[in-house]
Computed example of a mutant assay.
Amino acid sequence: MTTTASRPIIILIAGHWLGAWAWDEVLEHLATDQSRAVAMTLPGLDGDDPGRAAKTLDDQAAAVLDVISQLGASGDQPATLVAHSGANAPVSLVLDRHPELVHRVVWVDSGPVAPGSAFGPGIPEELAELPLPPFDVLAEQASLDGLSPEVLERFRARAVPEPGPVLRQAVELTNDARHKVRTTLVCCSIPGAQVLELARSGHAMFAEVANIEHLDVIDLPTGHWPMWSRPRDLAGTIQSAASRTS
């Protein structure tokens, strides 16, 4: 029988405009007797929080660390962090500040950010928040492949505007130990081979990938939101990554 202490701790963190609800279908497929998996909503993305538009990346990173602590993760039993899309900035901060608490990071159609980078450095200070754009505009930036009209309707209905400070804040990274954390790239809208080539060429969006010391690359062809288009396959990939010891 698998004990609670031996089951991998998995924390699922969705990207911009999304909360814990985005992982509902993935959680259904994760084997509950083999892992302790939870989804969290980052500060600023709780629609019921009246102060959410003022939240920062530091607030988000602190919240991830709080969940790690609440689940009993430690240097002896670190957690697996699953970061989708724009969750890469706060999770990169967590890796920099406490790499010893992370067993593995699974980037879902995402990857680590480079020091000093910001998602939207040119976004004006007076813009308090960024709502989910029209889907025709969004599709120019990220693939919507595999999403049904029903899924898009739910996305639109439940999306929460992204706080301006989160988008403008530059990520300060100083601890090279973050590069030693075991890493799995789940490549969906861009094939893994292309991601690695972009990393080797120094492309700003993928440059940090070239610094990772222990890297696995998994292709899961679909759009940018595989938690909705391929939830069973994504759950299996996450479960496998979290269970690995090397």
Rank of each mutant, 00 (worst) to 15 (best):
H29T: 00
R182P: 08
I13G: 06
A54R: 11
P131L: 11
I123V: 15
V186H: 08
M205I: 09
A199Q: 06
S35W: 02
V91F: 03
P112G: 10
G236H: 08
V137Y: 07
T56G: 06
H98E: 13
E197T: 13
R178L: 12
R232T: 00
D109W: 08
M40L: 15
A39N: 09
D233N: 02
D96G: 03
D66P: 05
V137G: 00
L173E: 05
L27D: 01
L138N: 00
L132I: 10
G202R: 15
L71A: 04
A204E: 03
W228K: 01
A142K: 10
A235P: 03
L57Q: 12
R244G: 04
E213R: 13
T3S: 15
E153T: 15
D109N: 10
R158Q: 08
A204T: 05
V94K: 11
D49K: 05
I10Q: 01
E197H: 11
I123K: 04
A63C: 13
S246R: 01
S74P: 13
Q70W: 12
E150P: 00
D109V: 08
A242Y: 04
T56E: 07
H29L: 00
P191M: 12
G51Q: 15
V217W: 13
A177E: 11
S35N: 08
V166E: 08
G192C: 07
H214P: 00
R178K: 06
A31R: 15
L220M: 06
D24F: 07
I13E: 07
V102N: 12
G47Q: 12
E172Q: 12
A83Q: 09
L71R: 07
V38P: 07
E213L: 15
Q34D: 06
I123G: 04
R168G: 03
A14D: 14
G223N: 04
V64M: 05
P112W: 07
G86L: 10
E172S: 09
D46G: 10
H16N: 15
V217F: 14
